[in-house]
Design a protein around this nucleic acid. Sequence first.
DNA 1: TAGGTTATCTAAACCGGTTCAGAATGATCG
DNA 2: CGATCATTCTGAACCGGTTTAGATAACCTA
Lengths: 353, 353
Amino acid sequence: MAKQRPTISDVAREAGVSKGLVSFALNDRPGVAADTRLRILDVANEMGWRPSLRARSLSTDRAFALGLVIARDPEIMSGDPFFPAFISGVEAALAPVGQTLVLSMVESEAAEFASYRQLADHGRIDGVILSDLRRNDPRVALVHELGLRAITLGHPDIESPFPAISVDDSPGIRSVVAHLADLGHQRIAHVAGPSRMLHGIRRSESFASALQERGLVDTLVVETDFTAADGARATRELLKLADRPTAIVYSNDVMAIAGLGVAQRSGFDVPRDLSITGFDGSDIGAYIYPSLTTVTTAVQDWGRQAAELLLRVIAGEQGDDIELAPAQLVVRESSAPPPTTDIPYPRKGTDRD
Amino acid sequence: MAKQRPTISDVAREAGVSKGLVSFALNDRPGVAADTRLRILDVANEMGWRPSLRARSLSTDRAFALGLVIARDPEIMSGDPFFPAFISGVEAALAPVGQTLVLSMVESEAAEFASYRQLADHGRIDGVILSDLRRNDPRVALVHELGLRAITLGHPDIESPFPAISVDDSPGIRSVVAHLADLGHQRIAHVAGPSRMLHGIRRSESFASALQERGLVDTLVVETDFTAADGARATRELLKLADRPTAIVYSNDVMAIAGLGVAQRSGFDVPRDLSITGFDGSDIGAYIYPSLTTVTTAVQDWGRQAAELLLRVIAGEQGDDIELAPAQLVVRESSAPPPTTDIPYPRKGTDRD
DNA sequence: TAGGTTATCTAAACCGGTTCAGAATGATCG
DNA sequence: CGATCATTCTGAACCGGTTTAGATAACCTA
């Protein structure tokens, strides 16, 4: 005796019209007399009718859902502040319009491809958000070939049929460099992201050109895979150099925090002996000691706008590229003027033995 | 001239049988002659037939997807190592069977309810994973009423029609306390999670009973909301006490890291002056200085098994409670014997001025 | 007043599967 | 040899919407 939810046919019978007309009325399509439409809507409302997404999905060939495939080692994901905030923003845009996010987290590139294929084949999603763009990213072609709509986070380095929504990292990097240079730093190192990732490359390029403008050497660059482990390794390498940097600009906060750990363990006082900056500020950076000078982006807003843009694209509307407000420098405790005297390495005289 | 994907009718025509029989053959149901079945499968395979999830969804009234609703402030999510790893595990179980995860991230409890309702109403999912159980959690009844299948992460404190998959925090907490007590600590504090959350409560209870067994005072408990900010506040409060603790057990790693920051900023040397431990170990804890003694769980495995259990429940199979291996203590640098002499507060004599 | 438009509505096909009643066939049994 | 039964298969209904062709009625125009 379970109360079945009413279908469009129930509404039609109750309102004394045909099934098709109900559909027209409910979808606000022309060809229905004003009073009839009203009556149908009333009846539907009264009966508590709600559309069946599945039926609609089958007949209209749409999924009413967006996909996000994240290809990362879960170790990297943990601690990464980007996706939680981003997803939360996406959600904020989707929930009000009754759409949902289908999330896929995979570890390898092969699995990533399979995931896009499966989502498209099964008709799970109408479009995807392509994040973490790589150089010559094959996903652009793949997704296009699969017939999915899409947007990219950032501009791809190849021809792309999809609009991009991006945040220019350059001003953020530049302001970090300017901040450090203004403090008097001459040897500023960069712990960069992987060069196969576009934002890794672009941050490095911005870093290099910012240094050049200031007339500073830009040879102190170590490439990493964005993990804490690799950030630590990069830091150890830099600190062992004869012409050791007095400041290190990290391409993300996780590495900056790991780097801070390495520096402190080696006996460096941050920021007295060494300045450190992060990127893509996470909450936790404000609470460590010293708190982390970093660059923050309105990630949640980025997610919201990305989802809205993709919805527009799916709806067939004009989908223009969107450029969001650039990242902002947040100066905290981990950056200070460089030491005036040379510091030996490994530094002694700390209160640890 | 787009190559349409073949439907079951195409296969039927090609194989010279009826549509219904093809369906039977493809679903391995009895009543199809062995050779006919083979022929049908051959034809289907040759034509590249793949089932339409949407059509199947409509006629079988299933979604072939699981839901996960996360109700947290994105600020808390960032830095929380649990969900990325958990989701990655869920994904590992879903991808091979062609199912997907529908993720919803909301900020308020009202939005959380609406989210469950919407997912169920729209038939987006067949079941949900209930995480972050609260005391007297209304979601258990809600989800049941919505007709969804579900499993809970941990045992609810109320009657529940759903199987639970849990990790006993108790051994983890106990081994932390044992570790600290063995080092000689007498005043061990606890920075607890919110008391409306079951795992918050249970960790606190385990902590209290572990202390009692050792005959130690258990009055040093501060409740928090699990955020870095609140972890920092709790730490400040504890360190201001006259009978300040010599060790602090945090209910998660994020708070432990924030607490470490507070302690260091106040001039405490960790672990010489104060020992600190975390919980639910994140990767980053291994890289900070001092590295964080913590308790780790195989979160990814938890996710995988949770998804598998829920799939079984949805399939109508027996769904028994599952108890996973308890959390493991990982001793690192942030814990050491208590100081032998009293330490003034705020402590002076650090190399910062 | 006949002929043509337009607005409104119905009936049926369609999306791509599943499922069930019953027909056709062949085997078994008394 | 006819009745009974199991096996194999067909045809049609069904899930709950959308969409299109065409029927009907009302309204204009000449």
